[in-house]
Computed example of a mutant assay.
Amino acid sequence: MLSEHFETIEILGTNFAIAILFVLIGLAIQDVLNKGDVPKFGRWFVWIVLFLGCAGFIAKGIIQVIWEAGL
């Protein structure tokens, strides 16, 4: 049974690992922003860039699922 679903398990594991990596990057950025006296505009800019990176990753996953389904 495991060998039949190996590819699916691998894809899910990779996606979860990347999601955890994004969370850790966010925590590290928050720590750096809190310790360095960053102005409010700079904080907004950093968080927008991080959000767009996450949104791009999610969009890539959705596009890949639609492309492989042939819709």
Rank of each mutant, 00 (worst) to 15 (best):
M1Q: 15
L2Q: 15
L2N: 13
L2A: 14
S3G: 12
E4Y: 13
H5W: 08
H5Q: 14
T8V: 07
E10G: 06
I11H: 11
I11V: 15
L12I: 08
L12N: 05
G13L: 01
G13A: 03
T14I: 03
F16C: 01
F16E: 04
I20E: 00
L21G: 04
L21I: 00
F22Y: 10
F22M: 08
V23Q: 00
V23A: 01
L24W: 02
I25S: 05
L27D: 02
A28L: 02
A28H: 01
I29Y: 01
I29W: 01
Q30Y: 00
D31T: 06
N34L: 01
K35T: 08
G36N: 13
V38N: 11
V38L: 09
V38A: 14
G42V: 14
G42L: 15
W44Y: 13
W44T: 13
W44E: 14
V46Y: 09
V46I: 07
V49K: 15
V49P: 13
V49Y: 14
L50S: 01
L50T: 01
F51S: 15
F51N: 15
G53L: 12
C54H: 05
A55P: 12
G56K: 09
G56I: 09
F57P: 03
I58W: 09
I58Y: 08
A59R: 05
K60A: 04
G61E: 08
Q64Y: 04
Q64C: 10
V65W: 12
E68M: 08
G70F: 08
L71W: 07
